[in-house]
Measured scan of single mutants.
Amino acid sequence: AVSDRLIGRKSVVMEAISPQNSGLVKVDGETWRATSGTVLDVGEEVSVKAIEGVKLVVEKLE
């Protein structure tokens, strides 16, 4: 599936994300709604860990 190619990809937070609120990330020039178990600020680099419905699950790059 097209979405499977996103797992493991680097992306950049475009709208802040917290455990309570989804935000936005940009992956390969496309904007996606995303969630995370931690707070992520605009501009942080993250990695796509999973896809749940139409949202990406991301975490901060170490």
Score class of each variant (00 low, 15 high):
Gly23His: 00
Thr35Gly: 06
Gly23Trp: 03
Val46Phe: 01
Lys49Phe: 05
Leu6Ile: 08
Ala50Pro: 01
Met14Phe: 09
Ala50Arg: 10
Asp41Glu: 14
Val27Tyr: 03
Gly53Val: 03
Gly43Tyr: 04
Val54Met: 14
Val2Lys: 11
Gly29Tyr: 04
Glu30Phe: 08
Leu56Asp: 04
Gly37Arg: 11
Ser3Val: 12
Asn21Gly: 10
Val25Gly: 01
Ala1Glu: 11
Glu30Lys: 09
Val46Ala: 15
Lys10Arg: 13
Val25Ile: 08
Leu61Asn: 07
Ala1Lys: 12
Asp4Ala: 13
Val2Asn: 13
Ala16Ile: 09
Ala16Gly: 08
Arg33Gly: 14
Val58Lys: 01
Glu59Trp: 00
Gly53Cys: 04
Ser47Gly: 07
Gly43Ser: 04
Thr31Ser: 10
Glu44Met: 12
Asp4Asn: 13
Val42Pro: 07
Lys10Tyr: 08
Arg9His: 07
Ser47Leu: 15
Val2Gly: 12
Lys26Leu: 15
Thr38Glu: 14
Ala34Lys: 01
Lys49Pro: 01
Ser22Val: 13
Val27Met: 08
Gln20Lys: 10
Ser3Gln: 11
Arg33Ala: 15
Ser3Glu: 10
Val48Tyr: 00
Ser22Pro: 14
Ile51Ala: 06
Ile17His: 01
Val13Asn: 01
Pro19Ala: 07
Leu40Tyr: 05
Thr31Tyr: 15
Val25Arg: 00
Pro19Asn: 05
Val12Lys: 07
Asn21Phe: 12
Val25Pro: 01
Lys10Gly: 05
Val13Trp: 00
Leu56Asn: 02
Thr38Arg: 07
Lys10Ala: 08
Val57Leu: 08
Gly29Glu: 12
Ser3Ala: 13
Lys60Met: 06
Val58Ile: 02
Leu24Asn: 04
Leu61Thr: 09
Glu44Trp: 09
Val2Tyr: 10
Lys49Met: 12
Leu61Trp: 13
Val57Gly: 02
Thr35Cys: 12
Val46Arg: 04
Ser47Trp: 15
Asp28Ala: 07
Ser3Met: 14
Gly43Leu: 04
Val13Leu: 02
Thr38Met: 13
Leu61Asp: 09
Lys26His: 09
Ser18Asn: 08
Lys26Tyr: 14
Gly8Tyr: 00
Met14Trp: 07
Val2Cys: 13
Thr31Arg: 08
Val57Pro: 03
Glu44Leu: 08
Gly37Phe: 11
Val48Arg: 01
Lys55His: 15
Val48Pro: 01
Thr38Ala: 11
Ile17Glu: 02
Ala34Gln: 05
Lys10Val: 13
Asn21Val: 14
Lys26Ser: 13
Asp28Ser: 05
Ile7Trp: 00
Asn21Pro: 01
